[in-house]
């Protein structure tokens, strides 16, 4: 249970970074922390104590495996996170070119 609570703590740290920080790069890091906390949570869901890695190797009987499906899903989720992070970083570089700052309180040309 305490492991799940640790995931929640990590999620809250990321959320704090996204909501409270003013530097664009720190916001991106906060978003990445959120993604990692969720991935960690999902992998933990499939874990069982004293479990083996779910690999079908030669001359081995299969017992006590951890659930392989969350690992595959988390791999997909990591790829998606990679795409989003790369996009955000390139947007951040362009924003720095246009505004000359990373401070979001100074990047306010839009009203909304």
């Amino acid at each position: 249970m305490s492991l799940y609570l640790l995931c929640l703590t990590l999620f809250c740290i990321g959320l704090y970074g996204v909501l409270r920080k003013r530097n664009i790069v720190k916001i991106i890091i906060g978003l990445a922390i959120i993604e990692y906390s969720i991935n960690l949570f999902f992998v933990l869901l499939g874990y069982r104590f004293h479990g083996r890695a779910p690999i079908d190797a030669q001359d081995q009987n299969i017992l006590n495996m951890v659930d392989p499906l969350p690992q595959a899903l988390v791999l997909t989720s990591i790829v998606i996170g990679l795409g989003v992070t790369a996009l955000l970083i390139s947007i951040a570089i362009r924003l720095y070119e246009k505004y000359g700052t990373f401070d979001i309180t100074k990047i306010r040309r839009l009203k909304g």
Binding site: I24, L31, E35, V84, L88, I91, L95, K98
Partner: peptide, 18 residues
């Protein structure tokens, strides 16, 4: 890739990823 568009996209990306 104008300033306003990048700013809007940044906001949208953060909200959408959350």
């Amino acid at each position: 890739t104008e300033a306003e568009e990048l700013e809007a996209s940044f906001k949208y990306t953060i909200m959408g990823s959350l």
